[in-house]
Amino acid sequence: MKKFSKISLLVSDLSSAAILRAYLIATALINLGYEVEIMGFLFGNNLYRNLPPDLKVYNFPGKNFPDFFGQLHEFLPKINGDIIYAIKPQVASFGVAIIKKIFSKKPLILDIDDWEMSWHGGDNWHYHPEPKQLLRDLLKPDGALRNPHHPLYVKWMEGLINQADAVTVHTKFLQQRFGGAFVPNGKDTSLFDPAQYDAESSRSRYGLSEYRILMFPGAPRPYKGLEDILTALDKINQPDLRLVIVGGSPYDDYDRQLQQQWGRWIIKLPKYPADVMPDLVAAAHIVVVPQRDTPETRAQFPLKLTDGMAMAKPVLSTRVGDIPEIVADTGYLVEPACPEQLAEKIQFIFNNLESANQQGIKARQRCVEHYSIEAMASTLKTVIAQL
């Protein structure tokens, strides 16, 4: 491992959540003693999240084809790590990394943290345009194929995965599909440490003291099953229950739709810095992750699970994808899209809160062992040793 000292992480779009995966991998690599830089293109207006100032992040303006090729002329010489680590099988990360590997002979690792094609229909997606449509997609200023993130290019990148010297994946679903080493996102369990927080004080701080709190610490989307939780609260119909949504959706007006129908059960809190999140999660009685069963969710590892597990909270989730394996016997699981089962389990947890909190303590132990930054670093050390 001495022959490698610096690692360049390439991110296809620094204005997307891909930067979070890059940050966690970077943190684990720094723990192993590597110098790390994060590099990528900015297709949106701002970084998805500002990372700590001591972490080097270089961004270049993201442009569509053919201007993207001009960007490469400036971008490629800046990649000077001993290892190239591409985040996502996208042209703007993995495609660039393959080109750099060809000319530099440096080893290339590809990280796959989501099944990108699942957002476009998965294996059923095909691109078979008529000749005129193909020309329009290629030549018009707003042509679909000018976008480097077009699913056609993602499909091509998936076909080139064997060009990587090593592959890391976020879930067992992705491992079965693409192979590679299983490296789930690690939680900073020294930051997310329940011993540093008092639940009652946290509830008081956020105006939640008079309620029994179900918390969803993330951005609502239809596939995340919040409608099922809210329907379950309708069924239970106990006035001191509340679903606390932290941060809200940056994508659309889905928050407003939920508020219109179920506003009496919802408390919406703003987005807080990452270092405040443990204090927020400490205020929860139960952390809920009611994921629905879709092609997209089967490939995902909801980070809200380890938020709750690390903070020793009872975690209520659904039997979708890797979730049963992640929480194992430390959480509470129901079938997806089943408000009746959610209602029963919510009442069961509150009726047996002491034993539920003991489950939460077991969940933290499991998180520290399997889903911490240290666990992540241990696997990455093995991956790099085999290059």
Rank of each mutant, 00 (worst) to 15 (best):
I7Q: 00
Q163V: 06
Y251I: 14
R242L: 11
I30L: 09
Y127E: 07
A377K: 08
Q359A: 13
K381A: 13
Y371T: 09
S201I: 14
I266C: 03
D142N: 15
K268G: 08
T168H: 04
M215Y: 05
S190W: 13
H150W: 02
M39S: 11
G143H: 06
A219G: 00
I286W: 05
I236R: 01
E210H: 12
I236D: 03
Q260G: 02
S372P: 15
D293W: 07
F182A: 10
F75Y: 06
V244R: 08
M311P: 00
D13K: 06
L305Q: 05
R364V: 10
S93P: 03
T330R: 04
D165A: 11
F178K: 06
P184T: 03
P131V: 04
Q341C: 10
S249I: 11
D293F: 11
Q365D: 13
L208H: 08
A199F: 09
E340W: 00
P302C: 13
R146I: 05
R221G: 10
N46P: 00
M157T: 10
R298S: 03
I84Y: 02
K105Q: 15
F103D: 11
L108G: 09
G159M: 10
L174P: 00
K105D: 10
D114C: 12
D329T: 08
E200S: 15
T171M: 08
F68V: 11
V154K: 00
V96G: 01
L152P: 03
A28M: 12
L145T: 07
M311D: 02
C367E: 14
P290F: 09
P239N: 14
I326K: 03
M157L: 13
Y58V: 15
A166M: 06
E130S: 08
P141Q: 10
H149G: 07
S16E: 11
S317V: 14
I361W: 00
E200M: 12
V244C: 07
T171R: 10
K224L: 15
L55P: 05
G207L: 11
L72D: 02
